[in-house]
């Protein structure tokens, strides 16, 4: 068994490559889905029903569908629409579209839970428009959502692994490649798991830092 681990460590470059791709995909998804999620959340809170309802349906639909199924849909379905994208682009697209729905739900939740009183106080002191949004509303939204977004980023991280099925060379794909080449199944996947774990611990630690900062401000 120890020999197996040595073999795995000897191919650390493959793992690092896979890890890098995993992190890249996760970070890109997080950033892009946050932006589109905010937009979608705004649509969900819009007044006209013709805007609000389809947005709501989209979010509900995404939350009922398994990610892999959706990824397949994108991967096999886009060529039908004459869109030829490589597996990377398909994977990223699937991740972003899927998690936009979850991000939208998070932002919408944070928005509806905003403390009315603090906004009222802001307006009473003469804040309006952009300054109101930037200095009063946004910080609150941010601090309220960080733990949940931290949670969601772990889900994003784990969903990237599904992309190995459509041959995106992320971490699990790398582990699987090492495994099938050198026949070290236990060691190869255990190392991959530990890497996912380390990344998760990093995310959780960062969330705790932000929460501590929020506590200091709130008192």
């Amino acid at each position: 068994m120890n020999r197996d681990f040595l073999v795995v460590f000897a191919h650390y470059d493959q793992y690092l490559n896979g890890l890098w791709n995993t992190l890249w995909l996760s970070a890109a998804t997080l950033v892009l889905a946050s932006i589109t999620g905010c937009i979608l959340a705004a649509l969900m809170l819009a007044r006209p029903r013709a805007v609000r309802l389809p947005a709501r349906w989209f979010v509900d639909a995404m939350r009922c569908v398994p990610f892999l199924l959706f990824a397949y849909l994108v991967y096999y379905g886009l060529p039908e629409l004459s869109l030829q994208l490589d597996s990377w682009a398909c994977g990223l697209l699937a991740l972003v579209v899927y998690h936009t729905a979850y991000m939208a739900e998070i932002v919408r939740g944070a928005w509806t839970n905003l403390s009315r009183e603090q906004i009222e106080a802001g307006r009473a002191f003469g804040f309006a428009g952009f300054p109101l949004f930037g200095r009063i509303i946004l910080p609150q939204l941010f601090f309220a959502s960080v733990p949940v977004i931290g949670n969601q980023s772990i889900y994003i991280l784990k969903d990237t692994a599904f992309l190995m099925i459509i041959t995106v060379p992320e971490l699990t794909f790398a582990a699987s490649a090492v495994q099938s080449t050198y026949f070290v199944p236990f060691a190869s996947f255990v190392v991959a798991m530990l890497l996912y774990w380390l990344v998760t611990l990093g995310v959780e630690a960062s969330v705790k830092r932000v929460e501590a900062a929020a506590e200091m401000r709130r008192g």
Partner: peptide, 10 residues
């Protein structure tokens, strides 16, 4: 922290 796929393979 482990994706289902990775766990299944392991």
């Amino acid at each position: 922290a482990t994706p289902a796929i990775t766990l299944a393979l392991l």
